[in-house]
């Protein structure tokens, strides 16, 4: 079966790919935080953030089609917000809806802009991060940034076994469909319920077997990892440069200095 991997294109080579994982994690998370905390009316600042991201994207040599496809993930969310926000009462952000009059308020439009632009920057950052860093590198990066081990381990297992689970689900679906299953309402819900229960049991048993395999190799509840590569001065320099730029964009953009 063909899976779509979270970290496809992470094995390319580019200046962004070569950055140390921790440096990239800090860079992109900081960028998102700065962006999210920028007031919605500071339009030039957002243009600045997007420009920085586009330059990084260009440097990373990722195929634009891939980035675009991944970015489509946000569209449903934005549409959901878009469907409601314009009906917000003037001056009451997150307040009551005015469904009768169908007035589109200005503050509603501002909220919509706010959501669209900030989610775009966030999604673009995360696509850049995950498409330029192999998944194990990301996990190790988070680990070395002192994210508790339990989280990185859970993420590692989830990522590792989601593929196995999807394969199992596909095989079950094929077995079901080859016996002429047609999804016709209520009585078929039972079949689907059985399938889910079956998948749950399989995962549970798998968990037990994996644990045995860990014990067999001397696991005692503590996890041990090798020291990773050091952050180089070049990495630090790059992160500091980009972040300085982003902070400048924010300060100047909020004051309307670009206009």
């Amino acid at each position: 079966m063909r899976h779509s991997y979270l970290d496809s294109f992470s094995n390319l080579d580019s200046p962004i790919h070569r950055l140390e994982a921790r440096a990239k994690i800090i860079l992109f998370f900081a960028l998102v935080v700065v962006c999210v905390t920028t007031p919605a009316k500071a339009y030039p600042a957002f243009a600045g953030y997007l420009l920085v991201l586009l330059v990084l994207l260009f440097l990373s040599r990722l195929p634009l089609k891939h980035v675009f496809k991944r970015a489509l993930v946000v569209v449903p969310f934005v549409l959901m917000v878009a469907a409601f926000i314009p009906f917000l009462k003037t001056g009451v952000i997150g307040g009551g809806y005015n469904l009768g009059g169908m007035t589109i308020s200005q503050s509603g439009l501002l909220v919509l802009w706010n959501v669209v632009v900030k989610s775009s920057v966030g999604v673009l950052s995360m696509i850049l991060l995950s498409s330029t860093t192999p998944f194990d590198g990301l996990l190790k990066g988070f680990e070395r940034l002192k994210v508790p081990h339990i989280f990185t381990t859970i993420a590692a297992f989830m990522y590792r076994y989601s593929f196995v689970l999807v394969d199992e689900a596909m095989r079950m679906k094929q077995a079901r469909d080859s016996r002429n299953f047609k999804g016709r309402w209520i009585w078929d819900a039972k079949v689907i319920g059985h399938m889910i229960g079956n998948l749950f049991m399989r995962s549970y048993e798998r968990g037990e077997r994996v644990y045995l395999a860990m014990l067999a190799r001397g696991y005692d509840g503590r996890s041990r990892t090798l020291e990773g590569e050091r952050i180089s001065t070049a990495d630090v320099f790059f992160v500091i440069t980009v972040m300085t730029l982003v902070v400048l964009v924010r300060i100047l953009g909020s004051r309307g200095m670009f206009l």
Binding site: F135, D136, L139, A156, F157, Y159, R160, Y161, V164, R206, R209, V210, L212, A213, M214, A216
Partner: peptide, 14 residues
């Protein structure tokens, strides 16, 4: 050293 039947059980790391 025990090698279990299903390699997916044995290969659990990234």
């Amino acid at each position: 050293g025990v090698v279990f039947q299903d390699p997916d059980d044995q290969l659990f790391s990234p």
